[in-house]
């Protein structure tokens, strides 16, 4: 049985959307509690080892204090920067160690950082962020058990591991960044507090996930199309007056009217140039790229993004196999 990786982002769930919207603070004590329950779930499935990303708060260290489990808990040897790059480095190391899956605690931004380097290692994303389209709102104990299923039965993962799409941002044909949910182009500005919530500056939106039940910029596409995007299907929206106005939940408690000039689906065959330059580009809700005048950027859809453990499918399959039935 393979070990399982754990990446808990201490910075998730704390950005300015607590103020400009009504987001809840996800404090690190709660993340410690979730990791503790994850470890107990993993331990119950006989996972031999959990390998945690270190962080300045010590989420993993605090989680195992006083915890009586048979499994080994270890920490990655890596330099900490206190930045999202820590998650990217940790994902690369865990992928190289061939762990059975990587459990993440964070929001869309954290999982984007992990997806850059996790390769084909399955992710099990637990939501502790603000806008959470990619990760699941799930009890940590169940997440730990589901990850244990994945680690214990890698040959069966086709039954409960699904491939998510990703959006790829290219400059002159070279891949420079990616997103798991949305690429949002807005008027030029500063990265500042990173989070994106101001719809008045929007110019273009690219989506690889859109569903009426989503929150964030993904919701705009979901509400205008009315049905979720299919696998290998993206959505492009041009923002401006003269078309439809969509009332969408952009962040917790923040519901805005967004004027959508045109909208359409696109396939993985297309590479769509970003037409508004200079621009500020947000990836999965966080301002990331400042694009100066003269730069030529494009966005395309890659259906082969990160592989994700479907928790209900994993638990149902394991139950069908009798994995939870104890022998007398």
């Amino acid at each position: 049985m393979k070990p399982v990786g754990i990446i808990a982002n201490p910075a998730s769930g704390k950005d300015i959307r607590r103020l400009v919207a009504y987001g809840s603070v996800f404090d690190n004590h709660e993340k410690v509690n979730i990791v503790r329950r994850v470890i107990l779930g993993l331990n119950s499935m006989g996972v031999p080892e959990a390998i945690c990303m270190p962080d300045f708060y010590g989420i993993g260290i605090r989680a195992i204090e006083g915890l009586d489990v048979a499994m080994k808990i270890s920490f990655l040897e890596m330099e900490m920067e206190g930045h999202q790059d820590d998650s990217t480095v940790a994902a690369r190391l865990l992928h190289e160690m061939r762990v059975g899956c990587i459990i993440t605690l964070g929001g869309d931004g954290t999982n984007r950082a992990v997806a850059k380097t996790c390769g084909d290692t399955p992710l099990l994303p637990i939501s502790t962020g603000t806008n959470n389209v990619f990760p699941f709102m799930v009890e940590g104990t169940l997440a730990g058990i589901a990850a244990g299923v994945a680690a214990r039965n890698p040959s069966e993962e086709g039954r409960y591991v699904k491939q998510a799409p990703r959006l790829e941002v290219r400059r002159n044909g070279d891949l420079i960044d990616l997103a798991l949910v949305d690429v949002v182009v807005s008027k030029s500005g500063f990265i500042a507090s990173r989070a994106m919530w101001d719809v008045s500056s929007l110019k273009e939106i690219f989506l690889c996930k859109a569903d009426p039940e989503n929150i964030g910029f993904s919701a705009i596409g979901g509400l205008i199309f009315g049905v979720p995007l299919a696998q290998a299907q993206g959505a492009y929206l041009s923002i401006g007056e003269g078309g439809k106005s969509v009332r969408a939940p952009i962040a917790p408690g923040l519901i805005c009217s967004v004027p959508v000039l045109t909208y359409r689906h696109f396939s993985s065959e297309e590479e769509i140039p970003i037409s508004h330059m200079p621009a500020l580009i947000a990836l999965d809700g966080e301002r990331e790229l400042i694009v100066p005048p003269g730069d030529a950027l494009s966005v395309s859809l890659n259906p082969k993004g990160p592989r994700v453990v479907d928790i209900p499918l994993a638990l149902r399959w394991a139950a069908e196999q009798g994995l939870f039935i104890e022998q007398p």
């Binding site: 704390k14 607590r18 103020l19 400009v20 500042a192 507090s193």
Partner: peptide
Amino acid sequence: GLVVDGNDVMAVHEAVSE
């Protein structure tokens, strides 16, 4: 309660403005 990068003047400005 907000945590802000105090080495980024624009992040501080935006947080305090809002």
